[in-house]
């Protein structure tokens, strides 16, 4: 059974249909890349899966480990092991990073019946991941994303993923706005998260992150549907020939 199974999903924002019969299957241990031009529905897909308010599901299903994902509250999805890496991480003045991370981590542990981590165990765990993300420990006591540069915000998203250890990570344009050094750090973080029990879905416009994180499957999203799927060579072909080539081919089909 797939970890994530999406079937003929339709969704709209206000009256505008964005997803139009999207189907996708992602198994544990796999890294999938979902690519597509602007406006193809990539971020909507990520938002719908994580439970972001503002979307109306008009048809289809999404199951996460067999459970009806679309019936769950955002926090239930997170507690069950789904992680969304935000394209635009939110600044939350007054709430510090360490608190958010530990509260999120312990919310999941409570649901799984595991003991909560105390402050010392938590710090031990988070420090190691911070060094991987080349983040100074002082970030922990700063307010969530407040005053962070674009690159720091994206690294913070990956740090959260590494600490929360989700089963399924959906990374929405995690590579946008990064210089080459930050891109490599983010890629290192994603690669460190790869494992036989974890699935990762990378939503991106560009192929360049995929030079560092090799995907098992690549899908092209256009007009709210997946119009083509293939291996990593599909991403390379997109980089060389642009999206028009795939879109024309799918129109012809």
């Amino acid at each position: 059974m797939s970890m994530l199974e999406i079937n003929d999903l339709h969704a709209r924002v206000e009256a505008r249909p964005i997803l139009n019969g999207l189907s996708l299957s992602v198994a544990a241990g796999e890294v999938h890349a979902i690519m597509g031009p602007n406006g193809s529905g990539k971020s909507t897909l990520a938002g719908v899966l994580a439970g972001r308010p503002g979307y109306e599901i008009t048809g289809g299903q999404a199951h996460f480990e067999g459970a009806d994902l679309l019936a769950m509250a955002p926090e239930e999805r997170a507690q069950a092991g789904l992680f969304l890496g935000f394209q635009y991480p939110i600044e939350i003045p007054g709430v510090n990073n360490a608190y958010l991370l530990r509260a999120g981590l312990n919310a999941g542990r409570r649901v799984r019946g595991e003991p909560e981590l105390d402050a010392a165990d938590f710090l031990l765990r988070v420090r190691e991941k911070m060094s991987l993300m080349r983040m100074d420990p002082s970030f922990l006591s700063r307010a969530v994303n407040e005053g962070f540069s674009g690159g720091e915000k994206k690294r913070n998203e990956i740090l959260q993923m590494l600490v929360l250890e989700p089963k399924l990570a959906i990374l929405d344009e995690i590579d946008s706005g990064l210089d080459i050094d930050a891109l490599k750090i983010v890629a290192d973080g994603v690669n460190a998260a790869r494992g036989p029990d974890r699935a990762i879905v990378i939503v991106t416009h560009y192929q360049r992150l995929l030079n560092y994180v090799e995907p098992d499957r690549v899908h092209v999203l256009a007009g709210g549907r997946i119009v083509r799927s293939g291996g990593k060579e599909l991403a390379e072909a997109l980089e060389a020939r642009g999206y028009d080539w795939v879109l024309e081919a799918s129109d012809a089909a």
């Binding site: 994580a50 439970g51 972001r52 308010p53 926090e75 935000f86 958010l100 991370l101 919310a107």
Partner: peptide, 9 residues
Amino acid sequence: FYLRARGLP
């Protein structure tokens, strides 16, 4: 939503 997406009720 950001806080809920990290698991906070």
